[in-house]
Design a protein around this nucleic acid. Structure first.
Length: 563
RNA sequence: UGCCGGAUAGCUCAGCUGGAAGAGCGACUGACUCUGGAUCAGUAGGUCCAAGGUUCGAACCCUUGUCCGGCAGCCA
């Protein structure tokens, strides 16, 4: 019996595997992740990958990446590449075991002949419509096909001719002969092969009959020596079929175990809906940072570490679950708080002038890169007479509990000086366009020698060296936790959050303006940001991954409701 | 009406072969503070869907009921 990590999670699948090992049903662990190459992976797939790979890791076993490419109508090589990239990015390692179900087609064909010879499969001439009509309903049995009792010889001959391309699409199928009255409708003589004259992304025109999922999947697992075939809940009712094919063939028999698929609040996790959102122009492609695709999350600034931590926290459930997206956000905050260097950026600039600061002078201030990580060191940040601060950080008539800048009030500029607002400059329309302030040279670095305190610290960027930056502020894609929570006649699209993306034209400190795409920062007091691939050197574009945890906003809300 | 799952803290979920009810998030309280939005610490919370049964002992096993989800592609 192999050793396993003593500190591994204690979920029901790992328990089942331990039991299999104890009982001698298997003496090793080998899992696989079997995506169909017809879409981009999303966070739900990350959960599956991390269950499959994590279990292999915990039991000192092996893990395969296998493309389940049995339907040439839907699959494309493009998706093979993106899926490989995503799984590798997540951190799962399949070593040299990258496989394609289509490589097993010949073996599957031979096994199909075995079933025909055993009288367990037959060629059926019913059309798709006829087949559907004779399948019955969940509560009434189906009707047996008139072709069900063809001779073995005739079945073998017709099956060979199906393969040879003698029949058009849909003309015939190969069906398993099981039980048309089974309460499990999947056992009512399911289709094993269908005729599809289409070019396969790897097999080209070699085949015109293609195996269905139910027939193929167990065989793929068997061929690869998988021990535990882990899949999502919707395949539970397929398990009898999975077992039936393997038992009839008498070949090596892996064990299928199902877990609940992931649902996340304020978003959707379905290929079909991604397509609708992209084609409808609601988002800008499959790697749009508003989408929970792995490509989108990566572009948004999520790290593989955060996604793995998320998978660890949500665990493995048997029942359908809806996970609060706040858990995912907490994971990325926790990770980035530790790792992301701090920087200063202003989203909605308000210019201030320090009237007692020398004109034309620029000084370099030493600033700590990450208070959570002393090893991150320090950097120089330029300071000057003219600065940008956040519009929200100034109120001409401050409400109670507003401790930021206001006329006559003193605050600290982070890592710099105390400043006091002396004068408010407005345009003809009465809008505040500039603040004239004084600074206290004695407070350089941010502390007053006389020990006086200020109640607020503001972030800022020096005007002469400020670099204009596009800041893309992302929020939840949908307005409601459950996007399907709609009135009759409306759809989930009516719940789209129109402010899921807000573009701001702000400024960032010069030192970060040319960082390569993918570089992550915490912009002090604003949130975590990640350089987008649309950026050009000197013309930065930052995506907001997530805001800082917003305790103050909650306090403010309760204060307001008390009044 | 058939079959298969499920119901545990405000939310989302763990809870192995029966042996003193757990986590994360959220909430609340406090500490600290040059991010009043960070960080850290602590507190509260549950008729384990209901009723009955087996047992020395049941969240767990059995029965019945209630409610929720899934299943009628030649998709995976």
């Amino acid at each position: 019996m192999p050793a396993w990590r003593p500190d591994m999670p204690n979920d029901f699948i790992r328990e089942a595997i331990k039991e299999d090992l104890r009982a001698g049903r298997f003496n090793r662990v080998h899992t696989r992740f079997p995506p169909e190459p017809n879409a981009y992976l999303h966070i739900g797939h990350a959960k599956a990958v991390w269950i499959d790979y994590g279990i292999a890791l915990d039991f000192g076993g092996k893990f395969n990446l296998r493309f389940d490419d049995t339907n040439p109508l839907r699959e494309e090589a493009e998706f093979v590449e993106s899926i490989i990239e995503d799984v590798r990015w997540l951190g799962a390692d399949w070593e040299d075991r990258l496989f394609f179900a289509s490589d097993y087609f010949e073996q599957m064909y031979e096994w199909a002949q075995v079933l025909i010879r055993k009288g367990k499969a037959y060629v059926c001439d019913l059309s798709a419509e006829e087949l559907s009509a004779t399948r019955g309903t969940p509560t009434t049995p189906g009707i047996e096909s008139p072709y069900r009792n063809r001779s073995v010889e005739e079945n073998l001959d017709l099956f060979a001719r199906m393969r040879a391309g003698e029949f058009p699409d849909g003309a015939r199928t190969l069906r398993a002969k099981i039980d048309m009255a089974s309460p499990n409708m999947l056992l009512r003589d399911p289709v094993m092969y269908r005729i599809i004259h289409a070019r396969h992304h790897r097999q080209g025109d070699k085949w015109c009959i293609y195996p269905t999922y139910d027939w193929a999947h167990g065989l793929e697992d068997s061929i690869e020596g998988i021990t535990h075939s882990l899949c999502s809940q919707e395949y539970e009712i397929h398990r009898p079929l999975y077992d039936w094919f393997l038992d009839q063939l008498g070949i090596y028999h892996p064990r299928q175990i199902e877990f609940a698929r992931l649902n996340l609040t304020y978003t959707v996790l379905s290929k079909r809906r991604f397509i609708e959102l992209v084609n409808g122009g609601y988002v800008d492609g499959y790697d749009d940072p508003r989408l929970p695709t792995l490509a989108g999350l990566r572009r948004r600034g999520y790290t593989p570490e955060a996604i793995r931590e998320f998978c660890r926290r949500i665990g493995i459930a048997k029942t359908d679950s809806m996970v609060d997206i706040a858990v995912l956000e907490d994971c990325i905050r926790e990770d980035l708080n530790r790792r992301a260097p701090r920087a200063m950026a202003v989203q909605n600039p308000l210019k201030i002038v320090l009237v007692n600061y020398p004109e034309g002078h620029i000084e370099e201030l030493d600033v700590i890169n990450n208070p959570e990580d002393p090893a991150a060191g320090t950097r120089k940040v330029p300071f000057a007479r003219e600065l940008y601060i956040e519009q929200d950080d100034f109120r001409e008539e401050p409400p109670p509990k507003f401790y930021r800048l206001a006329p006559g009030r003193e605050v600290r500029l982070r890592n710099a000086y105390f400043i006091r607002c002396e004068e408010v400059v407005k345009d003809a329309a009465g809008n505040v366009v500039e603040l004239r302030c004084t600074y206290d040279p004695e407070t350089r670095g941010g502390d007053a020698p006389d020990g006086r305190k200020v109640k607020a610290t503001l972030h800022w960027v020096a005007v002469p060296t400020a670099v204009p930056a596009e800041l893309r502020l992302y929020d939840h894609l949908f307005l409601k936790p459950d996007p399907d929570d709609v009135e009759p006649g409306k759809t989930y699209l009516d719940n789209l959050n129109p402010n899921a993306l807000q573009v701001k034209h702000g400024f960032v400190e010069p030192g970060i303006a040319s960082a390569p795409p993918g570089t992550r920062y915490q912009f002090e007091r604003l949130g975590y940001f990640c350089m987008d691939r649309d950026a050009r050197p000197g013309a930065p574009v930052f995506n907001r991954t997530v805001t800082l945890r917003d305790t103050w906003a909650r306090i403010e809300k309760t204060l307001q409701s008390e009044r």
